[in-house]
Design a protein around this nucleic acid. Structure first.
Length: 520
RNA sequence: GGGGCGGUAGCUCAGUCGGUUAGAGCAAACGACUCAUAAUCGUUCGGUCGUGGGUUCAAGCCCCACCCGCCCUACCA
């Protein structure tokens, strides 16, 4: 590969978070997974654009702000800071943190609206439903109950409801059923995992109604072009952030031409419909290309129990990072739970991964081999002799990890990549024990050198491949292997073996073991 | 109600087209080793594959029924 060759662009997004609370481990999970994906692609030579941010409009923000006696903007300024801080703590390598209150986002949202309007897909109609004056909110039929006084109430907020009709703009979603089904058929990996995607498909097959896309009951939002009485209602505004982030409405902008359509939107299972149904329909209407993939991840629960404020089992990302360490948290989340499935976390599970996988299998392998090199090879990469079949075999397994990881990351299977890597680490520990270089030291120094060299090679390859998940720790491992950040850490360098004679720094343990605080 | 997914070792899960003694990791027990973060390696222990029928030479896998758990069934980020 020559340096003049342009890199392939790769555009990835997280969902934008509604900053009506504080970040929890579920948010962290999505950020970390997306970050790992972005880092992987960068290391693999792609020109990556990674977008994340906050969705700051809507009724709930307006209500919360009113309750606290501050303006919506003051509220979101305050709350968004907490999310930005979480990104910082988790070392999320985003290229832009978008806020839907950013000026360019207003412009983009209104431009998309106009495109859909020009396409004849937006019309003015009436939205009707059970409305709570006090909550300023509509409730679906099943969120309400008819009580003995003959009046209907919101079950959730216990407020009286009235049947209300409100002027609203609608999007002709009903016109897109066939087009969407065609999309799903032609692009079977548009949504993933398959089980979630099937739910989306069956939803579309069951028939689509037009979608109410504006409100007049509150004004905290993007004004509808040409009718200031209305603000856009959630999804038109929120989803458009993915376009704003790369320069829309300037479709001739370099970044837009380069990055759109997005390669993957990473989202939670609660918003799969909006991303896999409404979003492609909006884009078709606006005459824009569709994202290539919507990756739907599951939710995390605490030891089998759903996270909830009232149970007090909600984990703040910063607390975990302080307790276990950032890379340990990142590794745990991506190794423990197959991405796409729901997962469970517990202190014991984190400690298990942290100690068994990181400190013992990886950290100790590095420490024992590097210590021998320091003591017996003058602290330099040893010169290997002729490779034996078992050396070739182990190295071949390590080398295959690049292709395995590429295939896994292509479908956001972080768990699968890490599992394959740790299988090779298991092989390496067995190899090290079988070869017993500490015995060879006394009987066959050349063979000892070979075994240590092969082990270091495996560690080098593994370290390069775990960088997306554990950037700092993998960097430290590469430091002690004498691999500097001058290209030697890119995936392209995996085929470039260690140079015998290279001086190595004194090894120090990189993955500490978790010790339970003394009782009492 | 309708649709879908799952129930396999103490725990978390894998089991390709039905085909020999159902696998892995963790946990547990024992042994080995001493280079290493009391790490590592090996061996062993451990399952009537949710229940009951059926098809088949052969069923964890296919069919039927039932039990249990979870998810989807539009305006909530």
């Amino acid at each position: 590969m020559t340096s003049s060759e342009p890199k392939t662009p790769y555009y990835i997004t997280t969902a934008i978070t509604y900053p009506n609370g504080v970040p929890h481990i579920g948010h962290a999970y999505e950020y970390i997974a997306t970050d790992a994906m972005a880092r992987f692609k960068r290391l693999d030579g792609y020109d990556v654009m990674f977008l994340t941010g906050t969705d700051e409009h809507g009724m709930k923000i307006a209500q919360t702000a009113a309750k606290e006696g501050i303006t919506p903007k003051e509220l979101v300024d305050r709350n968004t800071a907490a999310y930005k801080s979480a990104h910082q703590v988790l070392e999320i390598s985003y290229d832009r943190f978008i806020r839907t209150t950013d000026a360019d986002h207003y412009e983009a949202s209104q431009a998309v609206w106009k495109k859909m309007e020009e396409a004849g897909d937006i019309y003015l109609g009436k939205y009707e439903g059970w409305y709570s004056v006090r909550d300023e909110a509509y409730y679906a039929e099943d969120e309400t109950e008819l009580r003995e006084d003959g009046k209907r109430y919101s079950i959730q907020t216990d407020t009286e409801l009235t049947w209300t009709e409100e002027e609203s703009y609608f999007f002709r979603l009903s016109q897109y059923q066939d087009k969407l089904l065609k999309l799903y058929e032609e692009q079977p990996t548009f949504g993933a995992p398959r089980s979630r995607f099937n739910e989306v498909i069956s939803f579309v097959k069951s028939g689509l109604e037009d979608l109410s896309i504006s409100r007049t009951t509150f004004d905290w939002g993007v004004p509808v072009p040409g009718n200031d009485k209305h603000v856009m209602y959630v999804w038109v505004d929120a989803l458009t952030n993915y376009l704003t982030g790369v320069g829309y409405p300037d479709t001739e902008a370099e970044s837009f031409k380069k990055y759109w359509p997005a390669d993957v939107h990473v989202i939670g299972k609660d918003i799969s419909r909006f991303h896999a149904v409404y979003w492609p329909a909006f884009l078709m209407s606006a005459g824009l290309e569709l994202p290539k993939r919507v990756m739907i991840h599951g939710f995390l629960n605490n030891n089998g129990v759903k996270m909830s404020k009232s149970l007090g089992n909600v984990v703040a990302p910063a607390d975990w990072v302080a307790q276990y360490g950032l890379d340990q948290v990142r590794f745990f989340l991506l190794r423990e739970v197959p991405f796409g499935a729901d997962g469970s976390y517990s202190h014991d599970a984190v400690v298990g991964r942290m100690n068994a996988d990181l400190a013992n299998n990886l950290g100790n392998l590095a420490q024992r081999s590097l210590s021998m090199v320091a003591k017996n090879c003058e602290g330099k990469v040893p010169q290997p002799g002729t490779l034996a079949p078992e050396d070739h075999e182990l190295l071949a397994r390590a080398e295959r990890l690049l292709e395995k990881s590429r295939a896994a990351y292509e479908v956001q299977d972080f768990h699968g990549s890490l599992e394959a890597i740790w299988t090779v680490l298991g092989d390496s520990n067995a190899y090290f024990a079988e070869q017993a270089p500490w015995v060879l030291r006394k009987t066959d120094v050349e063979r000892m050198n070979t075994v240590l060299y092969v082990t270091l090679e495996v560690l080098r390859i593994v370290s390069i491949l775990v960088q997306p998940v554990m950037p700092t720790s993998a960097g430290k491992l590469l430091d002690v292997l004498g691999q500097h950040d001058d290209g030697a850490r890119d995936f392209a360098a995996i085929g470039t073996a260690l140079v015998p004679g290279t001086s190595l720094p004194a090894p120090t343990p990189i993955f500490p073991k978790y010790e339970e605080p003394a009782a009492g």
